[in-house]
Amino acid sequence: MELRPWALLLSLLLLPSLALAAGKCERLVITGSPDAPPLLWRDPQDPTHLIGATADVLQQVAKDLGVKIDLLYGGTRSLALDEVRSGRMDILADAPLNLGELDNLDYIHPALVQTDYLVWTRKDSTLAYATAGDLQGLKGAVSERARLTPAFDTFATQHLNLQRLPTLTPVFQKLLLGEVDYVLAGRYSGMALAQTLGMSNDLIAHDTPIDQPGLYLAISHNSACNDPWLRGQLAKKMTELAGSGVAQAALQRNLERWKAQLQQPVGTQTK
């Protein structure tokens, strides 16, 4: 079929914009929770940026894809989510799967990190924990910031006496004071906080996870970088990471990094 002159002209005019679209994603701006060590926290040397295990893994992924990334502080978790929804930032690095956000975000599967939520008790506790049913009739506590799976959240609401407090710090304090029998906290976030509060020798984390929510990369529908190529490449990388042990190694490394930071004199942690 012969192209009309105007159609040929239009196709020629579109060529530059198509070429630009193909290479539009040279830089990704990523944000996430600013207070979730060892996964993510603000860099004390540069508080505009986030560091941690998630940041390390994403830097490696970006290098493999030939894309530059900036892990920037976007405010509290809720404000960071707003930044991504709006498209001012491209990706939320630690998004729990939320069906209500599917109008705003594309979730990359599988999860970047699978978080083990453990049952923590005092060392002198006689609690014998094997399954969630063992906690019925006991007093527990959990942070309101805990990102539990909907299924476990429903179970906890219906069957457990679980007090929800604003952050993990008062949760652990209640446990140490004997005001609750157990707390639920992430394996690594709990270890980081126990170290922060000097409670490591007084608490036990039972090794069998009670819940294992995933934290996903979530790309804004309003991001100029949200295209099939990027989503496909990120999904491929997440699949490769799932069985590689890279994320676990990064978690261990950044737990030690967090501990070392805590041991620095206060005046030397920021510049």
Score class of each variant (00 low, 15 high):
P213K: 13
L241Y: 05
A218D: 06
L230P: 01
D207L: 07
L241N: 04
A249N: 13
G214Y: 11
T239Y: 09
T239R: 14
S220D: 08
G245Y: 00
Q233W: 01
E240F: 01
S244G: 03
L241Q: 04
Q233E: 15
Q212L: 05
L230T: 06
G243S: 02
D227C: 08
V246K: 11
A247Y: 09
W229R: 09
E240M: 08
G232K: 01
W229L: 08
Q233L: 04
V246C: 00
K236V: 10
L251Y: 15
P228C: 06
L215V: 02
P213L: 13
P209W: 02
D211N: 06
A250S: 15
G243C: 00
A205C: 02
N222M: 03
Q248F: 00
T208C: 00
N222A: 08
T208D: 05
G232R: 03
L251Q: 14
V246F: 00
V246H: 03
D207K: 09
S244H: 04
A235K: 08
M238K: 05
A249H: 12
A205M: 09
T208I: 14
I219T: 06
G232I: 02
G243Y: 02
A224P: 05
H206W: 13
C225N: 10
E240S: 09
P213M: 13
A242W: 02
S223Q: 07
S220Y: 08
L241I: 02
D211I: 05
G232S: 08
Q212P: 00
R231P: 01
Q212M: 11
Y216W: 11
R231V: 09
Q252R: 14
T208R: 14
L215G: 04
A224I: 07
E240W: 04
L217H: 09
L217C: 11
H206P: 06
D227Q: 15
L217F: 10
G214R: 13
P213H: 12
K236A: 14
K236Y: 14
P209Q: 03
A250K: 10
A247V: 15
K236S: 13
Y216Q: 05
L215Y: 14
D207R: 12
I204C: 06
D207N: 07
G243H: 03
H206N: 11
A205H: 02
I219V: 15
N226H: 15
D211V: 01
D211E: 02
G243R: 00
G214T: 11
N222L: 04
L230Y: 05
G243P: 05
A242L: 05
L241E: 04
C225D: 10
H221M: 07
A235D: 06
P209V: 07
N226K: 14
P228W: 05
Q248V: 08
A218W: 08
P228T: 04
G245V: 05
M238L: 15
P213W: 12
H221Q: 13
G232N: 08
K237T: 03
D227T: 09
A247I: 15
L217M: 10
K237F: 05
Y216K: 08
Q248A: 13
C225H: 09
G214A: 13
Y216M: 06
K237Y: 13
A247Q: 12
A218C: 09
G245E: 03
Y216T: 03
S220E: 09
Q252P: 04
A250I: 13
L241K: 02
